[in-house]
Design a binder for these strands. Structure first.
Lengths: 204, 204
DNA sequence: TTTTGTGTCAACAAAATTGTTAAATCTATT
DNA sequence: AATAGATTTAACAATTTTGTTGACACAAAA
């Protein structure tokens, strides 16, 4: 346990609270309490709730690439192998950041203006991923290794199959309660399931 | 345009606002304005913001069965046919209630105690759906019509593939912007995609 | 026409939440 | 130790949001 600066303690507590219940429901006093400081400290270091929120967003920006399957834009690895590692990485990322997707989706819905830097980042990034994947798909199709496929539909399939269980975890728990007792086992199960579905879709 | 009672105008406006931005971000004054009444009227008819919220939840309760693929608990229709209509119904339902899933997930995450009636309803309903589907799967497997499959994984696959695009629509828009210009066409596309994936998974 | 009850409004009150300040404390430097 | 600067605290202030009240209007019933 390393010693933490006040500023950092606040940032960490804010991160936790904003991700858990969102900007609107979060209370600056609750965040300060969780950080173990007076709420005046929060304003001293970050001026306003909104500026604190922006800092939290900034600190999460680099993670977004992984959220959007960034590992698909990669060196020349065969498609199936690449998809396998991408799905695996994606699930590992989600397991490490389980409420990040819901958080982003939510904040973008409740107040898009607050999230313009994020959406802009995602837009360009998603474009790159999608184009790179389409190029590789076309190539492997022409070599007869793979069925003709729209990269964006494929991306959406993978994103859906991986992310939904995390975004809607309280609902999914009601369907799969018993299976989810062991989180790691559940994730491993889903990885197999998703990869199986994707492979069946792509194989000629 | 039928004439609306003040009480109903408030309820409709509240429904819209709560679904759009959630309980925490919604403002009673904004709801009253949208309904075209003074905010004293809101308190006159519903006492508190929380009670108004409960009314909105109540009015949405019957819809939840459809959200959870309720049409899968049905007369004795062959499995593949049943899945086809279930996916189709589910997507139609989502198209008609695009922000209902995100709303429920969110409210359950930010304050589960507020949503206990909902979660209880979903739990029993999901149980029924899952058991009925598993029974039919087992039967068709024994007849050699279908590969051995866990009903809950199958349900999760369908739910994910259908619901994600709605829950995360602002994100999905960034990936599939051009395809989504025509909403109906996009939904039709997704229906084919999902059914294709599911059929490939199940066919021996 | 009086009465009675419901619905409406404007203004007010209370509560919750965010933001500020001045004085006190601590830390490092001279 | 004296100074300067940053940090902390407790008390306070401002703003936002929710909730209330009393006067008034209006319609139906007596």
């Amino acid at each position: 346990m390393t010693i933490q600066s006040t500023e950092n303690k606040i940032l960490v507590a804010a991160e936790k609270e904003f991700l858990r219940i969102g900007y609107a429901a979060a209370r600056t006093t609750t965040i300060a309490d969780a950080a173990g400081v007076t709420h005046a400290m929060l304003h001293y270091y970050f001026r306003t709730k909104e500026k604190l929120f922006e800092k939290v967003i900034e600190s999460k920006m680099e993670l977004i690439r992984d959220m959007m399957l960034g590992s698909l834009v990669a060196p020349d690895v065969p498609l199936f192998k690449k998809l396998e590692t991408a799905v695996s990485n994606h699930l590992a990322f989600l397991a490490a950041n389980p409420d990040l997707p819901r958080f982003f989706v939510n904040e973008i819905c409740t107040d898009p203006s607050k999230m313009e830097t994020v959406t802009e980042f995602i837009r360009t990034n998603a474009g790159k991923v999608s184009e790179a994947l389409q190029a590789q798909l076309d190539k492997e199709v022409s070599e007869g290794l793979c069925r003709k496929t729209d990269a964006r539909m494929l991306l959406l399939d993978i994103l859906s199959l991986n992310a939904f269980a995390f975004i809607a975890s309280p609902l999914v728990n009601l369907v799969c309660g018993d299976i989810m007792e062991n989180r790691d086992a559940f994730i491993e199960m889903r990885k197999k399931e998703t990869l199986d579905l994707i492979m069946r879709k792509l194989k000629p």
